[in-house]
Write a protein that binds this DNA or RNA. Structure first.
Lengths: 201, 201
DNA sequence: GCGATTTCTTAATCTAGGTCAATGCTTTTG
DNA sequence: CAAAAGCATTGACCTAGATTAAGAAATCGC
């Protein structure tokens, strides 16, 4: 018989995320859950501010966020859009307890599962299997960041925009266009021009 | 009494590298060494070619290398300079056995300790502690790649060049200047101009 | 439902950095 | 040791993309 529950199973997605990486028993998953904190935030909340120490890594159950750096002229560069099934945080700040270089801002009302430094270390001690899960996650993240760095230099803004649409077909419906410009590292005006030039063909 | 040896201890540096991450016993280090292969390569050797599958991760005992992407016009973008105490490889290709996006070319005669996929998995199985070592390595690598991506977009070429000199004061004596331009994502001519403008001040 | 704020577009002008080509200087290599 | 290859520099000219400004459209908050 199925357990009745007010809030469905808030761990369903994150468990599936883990299982895609390697098999976990019910017991292991329960232990994992015990280290997580469920949190709801309103649209436009600031999860992390440049200069602060990043206290949590956060898995998105539902919602949308953006990690970005604001330069001296107040222009920002989007490092990452995160939606359902993504993790948020500033790794450098989280692990070294140094001031973060990045801001994290929510673009929609968002539900998160959060883990702080001590909880993560305790989890890793209790279930060393998770070292591997997190290693693989970070490896994938590094590979995609390397690709993005190289693409950003090697290709034109129009090419990078086309590649972005292909890789993230659902992001444009969820975030304002000038954030996409800031992800591509171009001005909003120029992105508008690119879009218009494309239409003309 | 010290063991006499023709080739000193070729593991001295890599062991120190590991110990900076966490403590290891002599036995553990011996097991680790048993998975490594020592290799010498001549200057200009190609360790990995765009399109091939990356078969090894390589620790540099002595020497200098460059990882780069060559675009359709034959221009290249340097992803990484590696010298003593760095690791080389294309993570995405190594783990997923997909064609590599990058070339790795040696800039000096180089001595490496290499590990292939099967050996690395066997090492991780026998000594799961290494999951953590590699996780931490990859995290640091990701953090610096994120910074580089953002800096590349946010700052001017001259600023990025100054930051490069500060971060890697010894690289310019070991690699031709046009490789540094390709790391910064600018033309060699423009780097030459930047250097000249700076002198003028 | 309406004013206020954000967002997007368009157009004129400007600039960081690219391209091309020529010259001299170092390294390699045979 | 000479010829060739690779490297750095300089200058003239070109272009992708930035900046500024202003109006139009969409969305938000009450």
């Amino acid at each position: 018989m199925k357990k009745a529950s007010v809030n469905e199973n808030r761990y369903a997605e994150i468990d599936a995320f883990l299982q895609r990486c390697m098999p976990f028993s019910e017991e292991e998953l329960d232990i994992f859950h015990s280290f997580l904190t469920y949190q709801k935030f309103k649209k436009k909340s600031i999860l992390l501010q440049q200069g602060e120490i990043c206290k949590h890594e956060s898995y998105i159950i539902k919602g949308c966020a953006r990690t970005f750096y604001t330069d001296a002229n107040g222009h920002d560069i989007t490092l990452l859009f995160a939606v359902e099934d993504y993790w948020l945080g500033d790794i450098a700040s989280f692990y070294k307890k140094t001031p973060s270089r990045f801001n994290i801002q929510l673009i929609e009302d968002t539900e998160l599962l959060q883990i702080d430094y001590e909880a993560k270390e305790a989890l890793l001690e209790q279930l060393p299997k998770f070292e591997r899960v997190f290693r693989i996650m970070v490896q994938n993240h590094l590979a995609s960041t390397q690709n993005r760095l190289v693409n950003n230099i090697a290709f034109t803004a129009a090419e990078n925009y086309a590649a972005f649409l292909k890789q993230f077909p659902n992001i444009p419906q969820r975030v304002p266009q000038h954030y996409i410009a800031s992800y591509l590292g171009i001005s909003p005006e120029f992105l508008s021009k690119i879009r218009n030039d494309k239409k003309a063909i």
